[in-house]
Design a protein around this nucleic acid. Sequence first.
DNA 1: ACCGTGGTTAGCTTTC
DNA 2: GAAAGCTAACCACGGT
Lengths: 95, 95, 95, 95
Amino acid sequence: MTEETAGIGHNSGEEQDVGGVSGKRLKAYLDRIERLTEEKQGMADDIKDIYAEAKATGFDVKTMRKLVRLRKMDAEKRREEEELLALYQAAIGLD
Amino acid sequence: MTEETAGIGHNSGEEQDVGGVSGKRLKAYLDRIERLTEEKQGMADDIKDIYAEAKATGFDVKTMRKLVRLRKMDAEKRREEEELLALYQAAIGLD
Amino acid sequence: MTEETAGIGHNSGEEQDVGGVSGKRLKAYLDRIERLTEEKQGMADDIKDIYAEAKATGFDVKTMRKLVRLRKMDAEKRREEEELLALYQAAIGLD
Amino acid sequence: MTEETAGIGHNSGEEQDVGGVSGKRLKAYLDRIERLTEEKQGMADDIKDIYAEAKATGFDVKTMRKLVRLRKMDAEKRREEEELLALYQAAIGLD
DNA sequence: ACCGTGGTTAGCTTTC
DNA sequence: GAAAGCTAACCACGGT
C-alpha cells in the first residue's frame, strides 16, 4: 500500500486516484454507461408495449416476431451481399 | 386462392385485409417496432463505444462490467427496500 | 443430512447418492457430454484444416467464410418462411 | 469485366473458372465445410439433449455445466504439467 | 406458476 | 495487440 493521499475507504463523494486509477474518470464512464442503459431499457419497454397493443387488437405476437426477424434477415442479407462483392474485388486485386 | 379482393401477390405498397387481418395496421406496427429496435441498437453501440474508449485509456473492461452489475444490484436492492417500507406503512395505515 | 449410506468424501471410484443425487447417473451424463464435446471439437478442427488447405491452394479465406455464411442464411430464411406459413395458418385457426 | 470464357451469370450447375478461380474446386471446399458444420451442429444438439434429459431427471443444468468446466480445467492442467515435465526431461537430456 | 423458446450479452478464438 | 466473428451462458418473454 503506497498511497500518500489520505482517503482509502469512506471518502464518499470525493473519489480520487487509488492504485493508479482515476476514480473520477472511472465514475464518469460508469455514469454514461448507466444513463445509456436506462435509455436502452426504455426502448425495450416501448417495443413490449407495441406488441401488447397489437395483441390487444387481435394480432398474433409470435407471428409478428417472426416477421420482424425475417425482415431483419433480408436487410442483413442485402448488406452481406454488398460486402461480398467488395471482398471479391479485393480478393482478385480489383480494389 | 379464394380471395375476392384484389391484391394477392404483387400489390406492393397497397396492403389490405387478408384473411381478416389488416395488412396496413400490421405494417404500421412492424415499422414502429423496427424503428425502436434500431434506436435501441444505437444505444447498445454507444455503450460499446464507451467501453472501448475506457479501455483505450487504460481501464479494464471486464472489471467495469462487474461494477456496473454491482451498482445495478445495489439500486434494485434499495428500490425493493423502499417498496417494502411503503408496503408496511400501508399495512399499518400509515400511508 | 439423511444419507444412510456411508461414504461422504473420498469414495473414489465408487460414487453413490449424496444429498439425494445419484453420483453414478450424474457421472454418466458428464461422460457422455464430454465425449460428444470432444467429437465436436474434432469437427471444428477439421473445418479449420479445410480452410487452411483452401488458402494454400490460393483461395481467399475471408471470402469463403462469407460465402458460407450467406448460404447458411439462405437456408435459414427458407426454413423460417415455411415456419411463418405454418404460423399464419395457426394464427387464423387454419391448422 | 474481361472474361473470355463463356458462362458468367446463369451457368447453374456448371461452374467454371472465373477470374482465375476454379468454381468447381471452390464449391467442393464449401460443400465439405458445410457438411462438417452440420455434423458439428448435430453434436451440439445432442449435447443439448443430454442436458435436457438430465434436467428432466432432476439434475441442475447450471451446476452440471460448472462441473464440466471444472473437469476440463483439471484435464488441461494435468496435460500441461505432463508437458512441462517432458520439457524438463528434454532439457536435461533425459528423454 | 412453470416451462420452453428466443433474444441479448459476455467471453473466447481467431484473424489481420 | 487490436478487431471481429463465433459460441456459450444468461435472461426475459409468451404460452400452457
